[in-house]
Simulated assay, not measured.
Amino acid sequence: MTVHGPADHVELNRRYWDDHAAASHGPLARGHWAAAQPRWGLWATPESQASVFPEDIAGSRAIELGCGTAYVSAWLARAGAHPVGIDLSREQLATAREMQTEFGLDFPLVLGNAEQVPYDDDTFDFAISDYGASLWCDPYRWIPEAARLLAPGGQLTFTRRSPLFALCTPPDGTAATTLLRPQFGLRRLDGGGAVEFTLPHGDMIRLLRSHGFVIEDLIEVQAPESAHRNYPEVSADWAHRWPSEEIWKARLVG
C-alpha cells in the first residue's frame, strides 16, 4: 500500500464495495442483524464490555456514517434510538433493505457520502461508525462533518484499525512483528482497489479537538485468548499481544 493525497477515494471505494464485496454481504449481514447483543470489530467485543452505545441512547436521533449493511443501525433501533444509515454503496444498501424486510425493522437508508451528508446542522444526538467512514473516508473530511451534524453535547463513537496495525502490515499481507512503514505522514493507504485511512493517535486527537470534541475514552481492543478466528490481515495471536483495532468515544462541547 502506498500513500497518496488526491481525493479520488470516494469513487474507488464505491466501486470496491459494489463490485468486489457485495457477494458475501447477505450471510454476513444476517448474522449481525440476528445478534442478541451488539458485538464490535474483528474480535466480537461484546457491548456489555465496550459500552459503545450511550446509556441514554433510547429516544436519541442517531446516524451511522458508512453504514454498509446497516446492522449497527438495526442495533440502535432495537435499543430505542431513531437511526439513519448513510453509505455510498448501492449494493450494500440493497442488502440492508433486504434485512429490514426480513427482521421487521424500518429506518431511513441514504445513498451518499459520509463526508457530505444531506442533513442540517445539529440534527443528531449520536453519530457512530463501525469500520465505515472511520476507515474508508478521509478523517479530515468526515470528522468535521460529524461535528456539523451533531447537536451540542452529542456523542461520536467510532471503531477503526489501530495505527500500530497499519505500521506493521505490508500491502495485501498479514500483520508482522516489525514496523514496515513510517508513522510520520501516515494517513491514506491504497491497496486492492480500495483506499483506507488511518491517522496516528496524536493527529487524531488534534483533529477531534479542533472541531470541538472532548475525548472521553479510547479502548485499544485486545483479542481474547479464545478468539473465534484468524483473518488474512491479522492473526488472533498478534491481536492478543498488540491492538489491531480501537474504539474512540468523543463528545461535542456544547
Rank of each mutant, 00 (worst) to 15 (best):
A62V: 12
W238G: 13
A77L: 12
L111G: 03
A94R: 14
G5T: 15
G68W: 02
T169L: 06
D130R: 15
L109M: 00
T2Q: 14
E91V: 12
A21H: 11
E64L: 01
V10Y: 04
P224F: 03
P46R: 03
H240Q: 09
A58D: 00
N230S: 10
D125Q: 04
G26S: 10
D8E: 02
N13E: 00
G154F: 05
R61K: 13
P83N: 05
E47C: 12
S48T: 15
M204Q: 12
T198E: 10
S235Q: 00
P144T: 07
S129L: 02
P54E: 01
D120G: 14
M204R: 10
C137S: 15
I128D: 05
L105V: 12
T198K: 09
G85Q: 00
A239P: 01
D172G: 11
L167P: 01
P243A: 06
S48L: 13
A62K: 09
R206P: 01
F124A: 04
A36V: 14
A96Q: 05
A194P: 11
L180K: 02
R30Q: 13
V253E: 13
M1T: 10
T2F: 13
R148C: 02
L186D: 01
V52F: 05
D217N: 14
G185S: 03
G173C: 07
E47Q: 11
A74R: 12
S48F: 08
A236S: 07
A194M: 08
D217A: 15
T123P: 01
R14L: 09
G212D: 08
E102C: 09
R14H: 05
E196N: 13
D18S: 03
A94D: 11
I205M: 14
F53H: 08
S235A: 09
A77Y: 11
Q183K: 12
A114G: 06
D19E: 15
F126A: 04
D19G: 08
A236Q: 07
W17L: 05
V84I: 09
G85E: 04
H228R: 09
T198M: 06
L199P: 01
H4E: 15
A36T: 09
H240C: 03
P54M: 00
Y16P: 10
G112T: 08
G59V: 12
F184D: 15
R161Q: 13
H240K: 04
L179R: 15
L167A: 03
P182H: 06
G41H: 05
A223L: 03
A79F: 01
L111V: 10
V84C: 04
A81I: 10
D106W: 09
Q155M: 08
A34W: 02
L179H: 10
